[in-house]
Amino acid sequence: MQSRGKARFRGSEAANGLAMISPTALYATLLLAAPLVTIFLYSFWTDGYLTIVHEFTLQNYIDVWSNEAFRAVMLRSLGVSLAVTAVTVLTAFPVAYFVSFHVHPSKKSLWLFLITIPFWTSYLIRVFLWKVILGYNGVVNSGLMGLGITDEPVTFILYNVNSVIITLAHAYAPFAILPIFVALEKIDRSFLEAGRDLGESPFMTFIRVTLPLAMPGVISSVLIVFIPTIGDYVTPLLVGGPEGRMVANLIELSYKKLDNYPMGSAIAISAMGIVVAVSLLFLFLNRRYLKGGK
């Protein structure tokens, strides 16, 4: 009797929960899942004149992947994303560590707030200003020449892959800091004391206790930086120059300028496929840190 009552309660709880989430779930199904399925289908169709030919073909993928220029852009995008991820996560870790371990608890949210502010403000203008910072008459060059380090402006930091990496590392910094911070906050401080009491040096305690426990945060940071970066459009456009173009610029070109949706979709799906494959590989390599994570 009681168990049936319980079952009915659970049933009604599940029903309530599903009813409650249905508006949001419906929105996401119609405007997220359905469109993603649509471009997936598009990538197997062909662009006829003013119409789409609804016949299954792999021709778009063959065309795209046999194009050397495309492969170069795709490879560069992947390289830039990996570099941005490495730079961002490595430079973000000490910041997260500082806020979690050395800031008074009452001040932590203020520090996090300070770190997140630049992330929310005028993305386009921030990217443009990196051009000013890195440019020929820019801040960096004025500084270097003022200090007498170089005699003439250095040019390897604008309109190429380097400037794209610097600008993206700046844009995604808070995304990298926050997950690491959350993981560090969860570490029971008595583990660290135990490590010290057992005779480990502070450095070894960090390597053997703190770092493994922070790894779930590091892994989230890596994914949350790596996946969106590969699709960034504005940064390569403004600071990348011709040799810094990335896959998002190709997608835009196919969709807006060439009006070839199937081709654009094939590029987008290819890029997504690569991102997902690399992410899964990364998760697989780090699987031991994620056991019992939930």
Binding site: L32, P35, L36, T38, I39, I227, P228, I230, G231, D232, Y233, A248, I251, E252, Y255, G264, S265, A268, A271, M272, V275
Partner: peptide
């Protein structure tokens, strides 16, 4: 998800 993928979809 890269926003450009959402946008073109």
């Amino acid at each position: 998800l890269p926003e450009i993928i959402l946008a073109v979809a």
